[in-house]
Simulated scan of single mutants.
Amino acid sequence: MFPETRLRRLRQRRLQPLLRETELRATDLVAPLFIDETICGEYPIGSMPGQSRIPPNGIASVARRLYDAGIRAVILFGIPGKKDFHASSAFDPEGVIQNAVRSIREAVPGMVIMTDVCACEYTDHGHCGIIIEERDGPDLDNDSSLALMAKIAVSHAEAGADIVAPSCMLDGQVIAIRAALDESGFEKTPILSYSTKFASALYGPFREAADSGYSYGDRTTYQMDPANAREAFRESELDAEEGADILMVKPAGLYLDILKEIRSLGLPVAGYQVSGEYAMIKAAAEKGWINEKQVVLESLTCIKRAGADLIITYFAEDACRWLHEKR
């Protein structure tokens, strides 16, 4: 006795491509790049096999290679030659990111250039903005840090960035940056807000990659508690109300429930497959415990299935190649 409905009828191999609900495309992917002012040649990142810091004079050729592979967007992170308390290198018109934006724009006019707007790579203490002494110890000062983020965002737009992406999880960061961009004549520059960014244990390799480890304390007073779903939704809801053009959930893989909920706000959503997710897949693949290609494509497809319009991933170039092979 079998039921009249047999779902396996539609799983015949020839039929599967016709009925696939979620299709991962190269244009869904954004490649993160680390530009390091202090090096002359590419510097491999030990905890992220296959990834490197790139010297300023090499960023144009890397961007061209990615574009030729099918990548249409990058997000830039900078390692400056000088760090200080006020993150002054972050908004320097001749800073590492500003110069990288100009180099990529000249070499690859069609590439969409996103820039991470934060201060952790530029401060000598490694936190994401201006630190003040409070009763419980040093902490990030929200409002003075907003002014800093606005200056950084405007400097990126002046250099030619297509999209600015504030990542420091400050209250009011979107409205402050929007006002500064508009006042400076950049009304058309979109804001991709790291609107729900968790205080995750999966950022360790990134801190090596971006030289952004903090010298004391932690970031739990401004990043999200992984246990809090309602608060996570509210964070993105507020950024949408402040005028964010794209919302982001970071990390992506462990927070697909949050990503799906935030999709309901009606804005485009990005998911960031972070350095720890990348490193775990790489490590298991190197041990021969998993098939790297299959796991990568499965993980990216699931992030898209949950609602991501864009996926920031260190696997972007490899995934493009594998998607092309499938065709």
Rank of each mutant, 00 (worst) to 15 (best):
G307D: 08
A157F: 04
V154H: 09
S275L: 13
I311K: 10
I130N: 11
I75C: 06
Y194P: 00
D211N: 15
S236I: 12
S275W: 14
L140K: 00
G271Y: 10
V117P: 05
G137Y: 07
E94N: 07
V117Y: 02
G253M: 09
D257S: 05
F85E: 15
I113Q: 12
A201K: 15
E21F: 06
G172D: 09
M280W: 08
A270K: 03
E292I: 04
K197T: 13
Q51W: 05
A165Y: 09
R25A: 08
C120F: 05
E261V: 01
Y314I: 15
E23S: 10
Q294N: 13
I71E: 05
V101A: 05
A209D: 11
G110L: 06
E317F: 07
K282E: 14
M169Y: 07
F77N: 10
D28Q: 08
A279N: 11
I39P: 12
Y278A: 05
A283L: 14
S212V: 06
P205G: 12
R263V: 06
Q51T: 02
I290V: 15
I258H: 07
I175C: 00
E277K: 09
M248Y: 07
E23T: 14
H127N: 13
R53V: 12
E23K: 14
K83H: 13
Q223C: 14
